[in-house]
């Protein structure tokens, strides 16, 4: 349990005069669900976009599965990205493509040589994991918000990643649908043994999914701990999150 799959040291990022991340440190262990809690605009999305290489930090170090993400070339980056699933805050489904094409996209693009029957099998299996096999020929615009989230999750799962980064998986969903997503997150860990970083400001999601919680306040990791420990904290910067 103590092997680290992601390790972040001294990560800083400034946009103009806005210092979003300021010497942020974090370690994600293998098989663990780690939640990063922070208020809106605190730089949570910036943090995980740095991890996957969508945003280049100004300073600091990011190691994923033993590789330094900041000095990889494009091919090496693609190779490591196969092992990292990313669930976007806005789902990022390709709205000009059907659900099937959306799911096939990462399979085809990561230049695996797969037979059509195999591709179809993987697509259907990923959809089965989220319980939406019947939606395979629909367009994203025809789906509800919760369905879209689940399809996006299926697309993330299709490559069987070792690590999944969830950017606010339950934001904007009703309590019942968000509970479904939470159950899916837990089921995925049970089934595939993935390590997950869950970015959120939804307390219920944190409580039900996370083994450990990191608080992102003022651009750095203010404290880490488990749910009960943080809830009983008397720190006036932490307690508002739990009230």
């Amino acid at each position: 349990m103590n092997e680290s799959v992601i390790s972040i040291r001294g990560l800083s990022k400034t946009f103009g005069t806005n210092r979003v991340l300021d010497h942020f440190d974090l370690v994600l262990h293998r098989g663990e669900n780690l939640a990063v809690l922070g208020k809106s605009g605190s730089g949570k999305s910036v943090l995980i976009k740095c991890i996957i290489g969508l945003i280049r930090p100004d300073e600091g170090n990011i190691e994923v599965l033993g590789q330094n993400m900041l000095n990889l070339n494009r091919e090496e980056l693609d190779d490591i990205r196969v092992k990292i699933g990313f669930l976007f805050q806005s789902n990022a489904l390709y709205d000009s493509m059907t659900v099937r094409d959306n799911l096939e996209f990462p399979l085809r693009r990561h230049s695996f040589r797969l037979a059509p029957a195999e591709v179809n099998h993987m697509v259907m299996e990923a959809l089965r994991n989220v319980g939406l096999e019947h939606a395979v020929d629909m367009m994203p615009a025809e789906l509800s918000g919760g369905m879209r989230k689940r399809i996006a999750l299926a697309r993330t799962l299709i490559l069987k990643p070792e690590i999944i980064l969830y950017d606010e998986p339950t934001t904007g969903l009703d309590p019942i649908t968000s509970l479904e997503i939470i159950n899916l997150i837990n089921a995925i860990r049970g089934k595939f043994g993935t390590s997950s970083l869950i970015i959120t400001h939804d307390l219920k999601c944190v409580k039900l999914t996370a083994d450990r919680i990191a608080m992102l306040i003022d651009g750095h990791c203010h404290v880490t701990g488990d749910f009960e420990g943080l809830r009983s904290s008397s720190d006036e910067r932490i307690s508002p999150f739990f009230s």
Partner: peptide, 21 residues
């Protein structure tokens, strides 16, 4: 409009992480 909406809904980022330039 097409690329703009792909940009704001993070579809361009999604392509980037799916092994596509």
């Amino acid at each position: 409009a097409e690329l703009g909406s792909m940009k704001v809904t993070e579809q361009i980022d999604a392509m980037e992480v799916s092994g596509t330039n």
